[in-house]
């Protein structure tokens, strides 16, 4: 027991210093004014940013749904391949993550521009130029591209654990393709779906550079607003912290909700 505790000590110190204490600081700033007195004004100031918050959640949710629909069949088909093919394919999915996030997004900017590579290619066939850059679509594309691996990997790791014999058994018992998916694969992969959604939705909602590079910075997401609060002219840490706190609470609520869904599904399986 002693041994276990001392082994976990570095982690505990890390968590305390870099998670718990900073969180405490965020809460402190959110509930105080510039002079350090307790106030609820910062939390009330959020009313002015509800539109931005809703917009961020909408874009984040859309990106998450697209990721799920792209990643699910992909993860399933990878999980049914031989071990070697699986390793190669997972490697290919991970590959873009080895490059810096900013650089990847910057590359998309030059691809999508009116004189960008895609439009120049389409121009060869007399199509376009299509207005792709500086749109909401470009922002969602940027999110999907950057966060897709976070959806594929948890789905894949859950799906590799689905025994092929279970699927075969379902086939033997006369299930058609849809029934196998609905009654066998989907329930068994539910934990992967839940963690995939969480891992994509959370960073997508709070992202802040993608709108600048791909959205032309014409509409801010909540992450951009928080950034303006912290590094803008006034450096209003208090409202910035309050906005961060609200975002955190919203995300926690989403995760709690997802956790409940997860438990229900598992419960259903036992029955």
């Amino acid at each position: 027991m002693m041994k276990n505790r001392s082994a976990a000590a570095p982690f505990a110190v890390w968590m305390l210093l870099f998670t718990i204490v900073p969180l405490g600081v965020v809460v402190w700033f959110a509930f105080t004014d510039a002079a350090g007195h307790f106030t609820l004004d910062n939390i009330a100031a959020i009313q002015g940013h509800l539109g931005t918050l809703a917009y961020s959640i909408a874009l984040g949710a859309l990106a998450t749904v697209i990721c799920l629909f792209l990643a699910y069949p992909l993860a399933y088909s990878i999980s049914r391949k031989t071990e070697r093919v699986q390793q190669t394919m997972v490697m290919i999915i991970m590959l873009p993550m080895w490059m810096n996030f900013l650089l990847r997004t910057y590359a998309w900017m030059t691809l999508l521009e009116n004189n960008g590579l895609i439009n120049r290619f389409l121009g060869l066939f007399g199509i376009g130029p299509l207005g792709m850059i500086n749109t909401n679509g470009a922002v969602v594309l940027g999110m999907v591209y950057n966060f897709l691996p976070f959806m594929v990997l948890p789905l894949y790791s859950v799906m590799t654990k689905i025994d092929s014999r279970i699927i075969e058994a379902a086939q033997d018992l006369g299930s058609n393709g849809w029934q196998i998916f609905r009654r066998v694969v989907l329930p068994l992969s539910m934990p992967g779906i839940v963690s995939g959604i969480t891992m994509v939705f959370v960073p997508a909602v709070s992202t802040f550079v993608i709108t600048k590079l791909l959205g032309g910075s014409k509409t801010q997401m909540i992450g951009d607003t928080i950034e303006t609060m912290f590094i803008g002219q006034a450096a209003n840490y208090n409202v910035g912290a309050a906005l961060s706190l609200v975002l955190m609470v919203l995300i926690l609520l989403c995760m709690a909700f997802m956790g409940m869904v997860d438990k229900d599904e598992e419960g259903g399986l036992v029955v």
Partner: peptide, 19 residues
């Protein structure tokens, strides 16, 4: 350097512009 209240006004107008 502008006074704090002008800086705050500036930030909030900027955020409003980007809505």
């Amino acid at each position: 350097t502008l006074p704090d209240e002008i800086n705050e006004l500036q930030d909030s107008l900027w955020i409003q512009l980007k809505k």
